[in-house]
């Protein structure tokens, strides 16, 4: 059970307003994407949720409990995989649970197997491809004791083919685990393909311009990309993004 509520979040840097009264909810087991142009304060939002920064105004609630300015309440995967280069894959994925909670190696092995990383438990990150490293980072987030996962453009550094593969993989893993996910991206297709709901951010200062609940059934596969409905959504959101700045 984990539900994140952001209430009236505002943040400025040097009198420059970055986030302006942002409010949204991510329900338990929901996959919500935040879609916005680069530099719209998406990463700032994550730093605020993660407690790295204090909002000027507003509160975050996780399961009705205030987590504003508290670190370690959510599990987080940054843009780069951020694996410790001197640790093996197995030792890397348990890092989150090592910091807070109990390390369970058999669970970790199991999860790596499901993630298609069997046989790489004792490999080092440099021996893996970019997509695999990103998968390891995601497995680490899943194994962390926190039930709420924030993903900050995790696939932006990957090539198109790997990205498609990774999106498919993420969906299959997520549909099995159903942790709540807040996903930041600037890619419309990615947001449409993965999420239950999309929040569209405007440029600075960022506010939520539009919120969409997507009608696509799960489990989804890549055929979805070519359906008329998908393209219709894509066109609409594209126009909203165009219009909002």
């Amino acid at each position: 059970m984990s539900e994140l509520v952001a209430k009236n979040i505002s943040k400025s840097f040097n009198d420059k307003k970055i986030l302006d009264h942002l409010s949204f909810t991510v329900k338990d087991g929901e996959f919500v994407s935040i879609l916005g142009p680069s530099g719209s304060g998406k990463s700032t939002l994550f730093h605020l949720i993660g407690g790295m920064l204090q909002p000027d105004d507003g509160t975050f609630l996780l399961d009705q409990e205030e987590i504003t300015g508290k670190r370690g309440a959510i599990s987080y995967t940054p843009q780069s995989p951020s694996l410790l280069p001197w640790r093996t894959i197995l030792k890397n994925v348990v890092l989150g649970s090592e910091i807070s909670g109990q390390v369970d190696y058999s669970k970790a092995r199991n999860m790596l197997k499901k993630a298609g990383l069997e046989g790489y438990e004792h490999a080092y990150p440099y021996q893996l491809s970019g997509g695999m490293r990103q998968r390891v980072a995601f497995v680490r987030a899943l194994l962390s004791p926190q039930d709420f996962i924030c993903l900050d453009e995790p696939f932006s550094a990957l090539d198109e083919f790997t990205r498609l593969e990774m999106q498919q993989w993420l969906l299959s893993i997520w549909e099995e685990n159903k942790k709540s996910i807040l996903f930041v991206t600037h890619n419309i297709e990615e947001a449409l393909y993965l999420s239950d709901r999309i929040l569209v951010l405007s440029k600075k200062p960022a506010t939520i311009v539009e919120e969409y609940t997507l009608p696509f059934d799960r489990p989804r596969d890549q055929n979805l990309f070519l359906t008329d409905e998908f393209l219709k959504w894509k066109r609409m959101i594209y126009q909203v993004l165009q219009g909002s700045f």
Partner: peptide, 13 residues
Amino acid sequence: SPELVHYMRMAGA
């Protein structure tokens, strides 16, 4: 690496 520090701090280290 600042990235790794960032990750560790976000994870509540």
